[in-house]
Design a protein around this nucleic acid. Structure first.
Lengths: 250, 250
DNA sequence: TTCTGAAAATTGGTATTACCAGAAGGGCGC
DNA sequence: GCGCCCTTCTGGTAATACCAATTTTCAGAA
């Protein structure tokens, strides 16, 4: 069979193929992979190539090779790789509400005029992004990261950057955020501007309040989108049952 | 030469040896490693073994192998591996002050009676740990993580767990925290108890205040220890100069 | 002299084969 | 039934050969 995707070196293809089989649950955690010689036969490659692929898995911590015994599955790919993978969009936004509020407050005590100028530009760019229906949310990200950077605390910055990046890995988050973002076009600009003004005034409490207010709005939009999607799915399920009933009685 | 540390498979020894050479700057970023055949000669191993070692480096993203050309250094080991490595102890504690305060407030709205009972036990264990001069700070860690868990928010929990774990990777943090902890024995127990009481009362504002108060104390102890160490180093430097002067004039 | 392009050298990619060492299992003797 | 030894299986390493992609070299042409 060899479910490989060419254009790569053989060992990489093989590693991917094995990765797929691991992901599909063919070899659960703790079980042993087939012997190298058997894998070589099955995938029609040489044993050195099989070894290279298995070493690639071993370096990634997916399998553990025991001399004279075999290669045993240590953990499955995808999961438990980076911390905090299966986080829901709600949890993510709630955490940002708490943490970014505090970060904004700290930033208000540490910002420089240059920071304020940079953030001002970003607020403008966010406005432009929001007008474009196909716009990205890159400026939005930069806005939040600029504030985190203004805290002059690397730990704070890293945490916030990480929370933002988690949206990409979260299964639902990206979609839901997209929906949530379109549900509230104009207010978003004003909310960002409010944070900017608080920073310019060096007012920690105002900055915290403005940031929390903004993310509360995001959270509400998220809940709205979630509910909307649940309702749509419920309708779809009902519709399917209705059609099935119609067919059965036809 | 082959600066290998036996007791492992050859390819792992070789990978480590190459890693050392990378760390020592023998092969800067962008340069090419020697050809596989040359490495095999130099380390007195076979080419397949060299290939396995290089693949191990490649999987880790340290080198990039180009067919027909060679293996090029992509980045150096150690640095830029995990995010937020070079965070100072001060930044770390400051971040905890901000984030764990909010986590405690959220936890106060979400805790169950079972959570409170668990945390109560941990407060007791922290007291015991503090009495033992050789005690660890395991209970302390569990206490903070239990509160983070009580938020019922995985993102919040992951962030706080990660900040705590960063202490181990931070160069100075562990030592300084140890010093800081011994500088304030009894108050610590009271501070933890105050957080517990706020949780029991389901009072978010009190929980936030208690946690911030506790971590403020830790932060101050940390600053004290930092200053103390700086002074000690200054004295040591002066002493060294004094001895050198004495020798020179002897 | 400079540019072009093909040949040669170099390099990684893969296959084949062989043998060694550690581990595991089964059969034998006690 | 218990324990020891031997067979067998497994990964670890070596040696070698050949292929394919790349890089270099250099001769020939402009």
């Amino acid at each position: 069979m060899a479910n490989v995707k060419a254009n790569d070196r053989l060992y990489q293809d093989l590693a991917r193929a094995l990765l797929d089989e691991l992901a599909q649950g063919r070899y659960p955690v703790g079980t042993r992979l087939p012997a190298e010689r058997d894998l070589a036969l099955r995938f029609e490659v040489s044993r050195p190539t099989v070894r290279e692929a298995i070493i690639a898995l071993e370096v990634q911590g997916l399998v553990e090779v025991r001399i004279g015994s075999g290669a045993y599955v240590r953990r499955l790919p995808g999961e438990e790789d980076r911390p905090g993978f299966n986080v829901t969009a709600f949890e993510l936004t709630e955490a940002r509400l708490l943490f970014e509020g505090e970060a904004a407050a700290l930033a208000a005590t540490q910002v420089t005029d240059a920071d304020v100028a940079e953030i001002e530009v970003l607020v403008q760019r966010i406005a432009e992004e929001n007008l474009d229906p196909n716009g990205t949310e890159r400026a939005d990200r930069e806005f939040h990261l600029a504030i985190a950077r203004a805290t002059r605390n690397h730990a704070v910055f890293n945490v916030i950057e990480q929370l933002w990046d988690l949206r990409a890995t979260s299964p639902e988050a990206a979609l839901l955020h997209e929906k949530a973002r379109h549900a509230q076009v104009k207010p978003v600009v004003e909310e960002h501007a409010a944070v900017l003004e608080a920073l310019r005034a060096r007012d920690p409490n105002a900055a915290r309040a403005a940031m929390r207010s903004h993310l509360s709005a995001v959270l509400e939009g998220l809940l709205f989108a979630t509910e909307e999607r649940a309702l749509a799915e419920a309708r779809k399920a009902t519709q399917a049952k209705r059609e099935r009933y119609a067919k059965a009685t036809a």
